[in-house]
Each structure stands twice: as C-alpha cells, then as structure tokens.
Design a binder for these strands. Structure first.
Lengths: 342, 342
DNA sequence: TTGACATGCTTAATCGTTTAAGCATATGCT
DNA sequence: AGCATATGCTTAAACGATTAAGCATGTCAA
C-alpha cells in the first residue's frame, strides 16, 4: 500500500543521505532554522514527505528535555463533570502543541502515588491533579522537590506548594441557600457527600454561613454516596421525621435528581410542595422536568484556567503561587419556584 | 525537602558510579536479569532509591521500540458514554502496564488525521479509534501500512484493514421496536441522528427490519442533533401532524429525554399517552421519572473488549482480523408501559 | 588435567534527535 | 586591501537506556 513498506523507520540521517547533507542540517532545515537556506529547506521537506518521515518526539525529548506532554490525574473519567473539565484542559493545551495523558486515580491514594511516578517516568512536562481524598500536603512538597510543575484542580490540599484552580463552591452554595431563605424557607436540609476534600467542605460551609447570617439552624445535614439511588432513599427517611424540612440544598445536580425522584415516590412534587437545589448546572438540569434550580460551576472554564496556570508554571517554575477561583452563578428554574410567605 | 535536590536527573551511570559497577550491570540488576547476582540486585536497588532514581521510559523506548503507551481517539470526551468506554479501556490496559493518551477528534476528519500523526510521532504501541463521520477505508489502509496496531470502536469503516468492536445496535433497536409492536403500536416514529456512521445506520436498520417483519411502515424517520433541546422541539412538530405516531423509538437516552420533555410541554405523558424508548441505559435512564425503557449497550464492556483486542494485535500483528459484537439487552421500564390493545 | 559450561560482570554500539563549536566562503564597509 | 560579519553548512558529542558480544573466573565431570 505505502510507497515504502520496508519496516525500518525513516530517520533524519536517511533523509540526509538522500539529499546529500548532514543529519544536523536536515534537523535544522525541517525546523526552519534561519541558518539553513530556503532552497535547502524546501528540498529537505520534499524528500522527507516522499520517504514518509515521521518525527520521533521521544528521541527529541531525550535530547531537549521537553516532551510536550502533560499528565492529568482525576478520580473518575466516567463522571461527566470531570469529562467536561478535561475537555477544557484540552482546549488550551492542544493549541500549545501538547497532548495529555489522562489517568484515573479512582480516588485511591496509593494508586495516585503510583500514577504520579508513572507520569514522571513518562517525562511529562507538568501535571494537573484532582487529589484523592486524604491526600496531604507532603505529597505536594514531594512533587515540588521533583521539580515537577503541578496544579491542583477542584480540591485544595496545600497553599504552600502548588497552584490551585476551582469553582467558588462556598459562594454558590451561599447564594442558593439565601435564595431559599428569601423564599421563606426556615427548615432547610443539606444533603451532601462526606467531607473528604475541600470541595465538599466549602459547599457545606457556604450553606452553613448563609443560614447563620439569618440566624437559622440547618434542619439536617446528611451525607450519602454521590448517586441518585442513595439520595433518593435518603430523602424519604428525612421526610418521615417529625418537623421535616421544606427544602433541600443538594451537593450536586445528581443528588438533587435523586431527591426529586424520592419525593415523587412519596407523592411530593419538587417546586410545588418542596424546594430543591442542585449544583453544577449539568446538561440534564436544563432539560429535565421540573427544570432544576442550581449553580453553574463552569467545568470547562475551570479546565481551561487550570491548563493556563500549568503552562505558566512550566514556563516560569519560580513564579509566585496562584489561586484562581472561578465564580459560580445561580440559575433559578422551577424546583424551588414558590414562596412560602406569599 | 528531598534528600537530593540537585536538579540533575539521576541516571543509571550515576548509580553505577556509586556502586562501582558498569551502567549495563545496573540496568540488568534493576530489571532482575538472571545473570546478575541477587546480592548485586539488592545493593543496586537500595542505592537507586537512596539517590531517587527515576526510570526514563523514553530513553528505554528509543532503544527497545516499546513505549507502553496507547492512543485513544474519540469524538467527544465530555460525552458520558465515551467516558465510560475509556474507563473500560483503562480497566484492561492499566494492569498490562500501559497508559493511554486520550484525544478528542471532535468528529473532524482533518483533525483526526493530525492526531493520528501526533500519536505516531509519540511512538504509541497501538491506537483505538472511534472514527469521525466520513472517514473512509483508505485511512485504515494507511494506518495498516504504517504497521500501527489499531482497533475500530463503535463505528465500523472497514472489514479489511482493522479489528472492530461494537455494541449490537441492530439487535437492540429491533428488540425495542418489536416490544412496541407487541404492545399494539402501529404508527411508530424513529428519531435519530444523521446517518453519519455505521452506529447510526445499524440502529435505523434494526428499527426498519423489525417493522418490515410485521409489515409495518415507519410513521416517520426524523433526524436531529443529538441534544435534548433538538429532540424536544422535533417531537412537538411530529405530534401536530395528521395521524401522529403513538410511539417513538429514539436514537439514544438523551434523545428520548428530550422527547419526553417535549411531550410533557404538550400535556402528553410518556408511558401513559405515548410510548418512548431510548438507547444506552445511562445512569439517568434508571433513575429519571418516568423510568426509561431502553437498551443497555454496556459501554464499559465495549471498552474492555476493544482494549483486549488491541493488546492481542500488538502482540501478534499478523493475527486474523476479529470483530467483536457485544449483545445489547432491552430493559423495560415505564415509558411504554401500556398496551394499546388491552 | 582438560574441556564444557555457568556465573557475573564489562565494553561498546545503538536508538533518533538536537546543539555547541567550528569552518569555509561570500559580502559589505571603510 | 583588510577586517568584520553573515551565510550555510559539518563534525562530534550529547540525552539515558538496552543489549550483543566478550572476558575473566569458578565449578563440575570424565
């Protein structure tokens, strides 16, 4: 099929032999070095494509130390939110000529460490990491000591050793809680995850701070797995309590959907009999019925900012540490669309 | 922080100098070559960790030709279905000591070709590709001529040049359509994507074949973008026609959810007044209200099988071409939960 | 004792690229 | 003419690992 089917790899020296130059000249010609004549450049380019030359990035990296590759460690690729983040990272690094190696830590610290080493062996130029729960500052001190550029995404473990990009979870949750309070709700429950990482803590504190501001106490603070099934069951038990809540602030859209399902099972309709808020503004939140009141956390934007920060750190390893917090905005739809006081 | 913070990379020769051996001996020692004494192996290992040695895979690859890296080209990382696929691939290649480079083709053929070359430059051991719409057989002939192991995933372009793994879309759609027919439906619409790739064609033909078997004609065959919004609008115009359909077979769960929303807007309830089926059995399908009748396409399983096939082809490049079709199974929930004839 | 073979290493080449240093030749300037 | 500088290349040495070939020893059998 191909013009040259000899299984040997075409190298610079082969081209050099063909054109009658040194391999160094060919290397410079292909990269458009100004000390190589235009005529030679053209000739070399022609021969290169004729022979089917393929640039060997690894050989180049060995010499230059630049791999044009970055590593991304996240907890779960199959989570659409993370997928969107990764897409955002890609938006930035792709035009920069880099590609990403994406790995799943499965939120397991030991695996996370293995993967980190694997990436180091691979020679990536930098790493974006969403740290597994329980990760401590020492890990970042270590990464630092390796001289490996690194950015924390979504979950903050250290302020000392590593840049950080995230959504403003505290603000988003505050705004949503205030919204409910303004609608007249006084018994508001929080349904979230265990406080495994900063992203979880920030959400809860956003909720609590908003309540405190209005001298309210939470009707409940409940934790469950981040699945529809779990929250669907959870809400049912909450409703059966004496003095049940009239509203629920949920950790994520997914949790909110579970809650809405659970309420539905009990004949309670979200937005009519009970108020529910989500978090993330997933595609589903916009189109589902009833449309979900939630906070947009702009995953793609977070991915982009993280990538930008990483590129900066790769370029200037000694730059001052930066923290980028992407504001959230609440989006009011139907799931708390009634006022208790009116 | 680290014991050695000198920015120089620790190499085999450095260790060799420290232990008083040749770098060749160190290399063999670290890999447990049988011609190196256990005592030496232990000593070398100790010194290596003491100095903070990091294996350089790229240098090794340059010599051996094996990068232990594979490339995955998909159309959209942010699509949860693809994310799940990738997770499946990971399940298999990770224990095999390989890692994946994941790239977004954005369903753009030109970009796809660029990325393919980028992966070749990167020196990946093999490629998994979900071909962009319009990709033709020539591309795979070319990949073949490069000697690059490759597997097509989900979308079949060639039977001649490349292994193939997919779900049995035809069967799934057939079963769903038959289900509707058995419930007494006679005016069934198909709502799908444009016939850009085999996965789309197979679904439609599954639908058509089931109808033909019962001497029925489709009430409509409509194409729209694969978004909730698009199908939500589409169904409204369909319903307004004279002799509107009583059921809709949808390309995916996402499309089905849009249809259900659109029906809801018109006061029509899926599962009571109209039948709807989805495809994929996404997490949402299980928990949404009403629970969606759909076909499970087992994304994770497809990912796993694809990875296995790729590993096989890397090991035996000349092995006979293989085609793995993962059966689908239909899952009957509530969205067509009534019989017209009863 | 001798040959055969195993053991435990070393030497040196190699993978494909980049780059510092050097070397002619040409060109411009005074 | 004489000097400086630009142009267009070459040479040779890296980068860090692997591996074929070779070379001392040691051991065992006959």
């Amino acid at each position: 099929m191909s013009p040259k089917s000899s299984s040997k790899r075409i190298t610079l020296s082969l081209i050099a032999k063909e054109v009658g130059l040194s391999s160094a000249a060919v290397s410079m010609a292909l990269r458009g070095h100004h000390r190589v004549s235009k005529a030679t450049q053209k000739k070399v380019a022609e021969v290169a494509t004729r022979l089917g030359y393929v640039y060997d990035r690894n050989a180049a990296r060995l010499r230059t130390g630049q791999s044009n590759t970055i590593g991304i460690i996240i907890s779960d690729i199959s989570n659409p939110f993370f997928a969107e983040l990764v897409a955002g990272v890609d938006d930035i690094i792709d035009p920069a000529g880099k590609i990403s190696i994406l790995i799943n830590s499965r939120d397991d610290q030991q695996r996370q460490l293995q993967l980190l080493n694997r990436l180091r062996e691979q020679g990536v130029d930098g790493i974006i990491i969403c740290p597994a729960p329980g990760t401590d500052e020492q890990l970042f001190a270590q990464i630092n000591s390796w001289g490996m550029p690194c950015v924390q995404m979504l979950r903050r473990v250290t302020d000392l050793y590593c840049d950080y990009v995230s959504a403003d979870y505290h603000q988003g949750m505050s705004l949503l809680s205030e919204h409910l309070i303004n609608l007249g709700h006084r018994r508001i429950a929080y349904i979230g995850s265990h406080l495994e990482h900063s992203a979880a803590k920030q959400r809860l504190s956003g909720f609590l701070d908003a309540l405190k501001k209005h001298d309210l106490k939470p009707a409940a603070i409940e934790c469950c797995d981040l699945t529809r099934r779990a929250s669907r069951n959870l809400i049912k038990s909450l409703i059966k309590r004496p003095e049940p809540p009239t509203a629920a602030v949920c950790y994520s859209d997914i949790i909110a959907f579970g809650v809405i399902s659970g309420l539905h099972d009990l004949g309670i309709e979200a937005g009519r009999d009970f108020a529910v808020t989500g978090f993330d503004n997933s595609d589903e939140a916009q189109q589902a019925w009833p449309p979900l009141t939630t906070a947009a956390s702009h995953a793609r934007e977070i991915g982009k900012e993280t990538a930008k920060l990483l590129l900066r750190r790769i370029a200037e390893p000694e730059a001052v540490l930066e923290k980028t917090i992407i504001p959230t905005e609440i989006i009011i739809r139907s799931t708390c669309g009634f006022s208790l006081t009116s």
